[in-house]
């Protein structure tokens, strides 16, 4: 049985295909303006890459912010349930997931079967999310991919105290004009994200082992800052960004 999961996020869209529970492949594209088109395109491109005919797929679940915009799926589910299922699939021992996506951050606690026991999500504010990092990268004129490694070279991280993305950006700009080192500013940004997400983690009662998923997990600086803040080690799977799509494909196996 071939199943698929499509995770349409605010910044990127992801797809994953499983054959009898074995991961065949994944794909990531930018979502852009039209989430329906993005959902369809990432799915079709993955099928083409895997040389699969769409008719071979009967069970598809969509998730993410654009989950209700695609019509060719059997069902849509929220990212929380899908990230739980995805993390459990990749590592059955995992008990907590910290997912930082484009406009959401969330902490999910799962049981030994991968079912969600509890979760907590950020409030309406986008600070502490991928979008926050994007805004900061632009202000610092650094490629987002270089953010993580640059921050590891920081001497002492700058203090970014504002909770608001817009005000934090002006804080960063004033640090730049004071001649603060770029590495220190970036490390400060990572610490501010870690502080916000750690507060959620403590609220929901995080249980190790912990994995980090979502696009921001690719940023080693955020992961290190988070480990320091929480005092636990955090694993990052190579599939961190497509974890939600994999979870959706796993859950699609349960569709009757």
């Amino acid at each position: 049985m071939i199943t698929a999961g499509i995770d349409i996020g605010s910044i990127t869209s992801k797809a994953a295909v499983l054959a009898d529970g074995k991961l065949l492949g994944t794909r990531v594209i930018f979502t852009g303006y039209n989430s329906e088109v993005a959902g369809r395109r990432v799915f079709e491109e993955l099928l083409e890459e895997l040389r699969l005919d769409p008719s071979a797929l009967r069970k598809i679940i969509s998730t993410g912010y654009g989950r209700n915009s695609v019509t060719f799926v059997n069902k849509s589910m929220t990212e929380i349930i899908c990230h739980g299922a995805g993390a459990h699939y990749l590592n059955p021992g995992v008990r907590s997931i910290m997912d930082i996506g484009g406009q959401d951050s969330k902490v999910i606690v799962i049981d030994e079967k991968g079912k969600v026991k509890n979760f907590s999500m950020n409030d309406k504010c986008a600070a502490g999310t991928g979008r926050f990092l994007e805004v900061m990268a632009r202000a610092l004129e650094v490629d987002l991919d270089g953010f993580g490694t640059l921050s590891l070279k920081a001497g002492s991280p700058s203090k970014i105290s504002s909770l608001c993305t817009v005000f934090a950006e002006s804080e960063v700009i004033s640090l730049i004009s004071k001649g603060e080192r770029r590495e220190n500013i970036i490390a400060g940004i990572h610490e501010s994200i870690a502080a916000r997400v750690a507060a959620m983690a403590n609220r929901v009662g995080i249980v190790p082992p912990v994995v980090m998923t979502g696009g921001v997990a690719k940023n080693i600086g955020v992961v290190k800052a988070m480990e320091k803040k929480l005092g636990v080690s955090i694993n990052v799977s190579p599939y961190a960004q497509v974890n939600g799509a994999i979870g959706a494909a796993v859950l699609a196996m349960g569709i009757k």
């Binding site: 912010y65 589910m77 929220t78 990212e79 929380i80 349930i81 959401d104 969600v116 026991k117 509890n118 979760f119 999500m121």
Partner: peptide, 10 residues
């Protein structure tokens, strides 16, 4: 909507 959907799924 996402929070309510996730809560109900849970």
């Amino acid at each position: 909507a996402t929070r309510i959907d996730a809560f109900m799924e849970m």
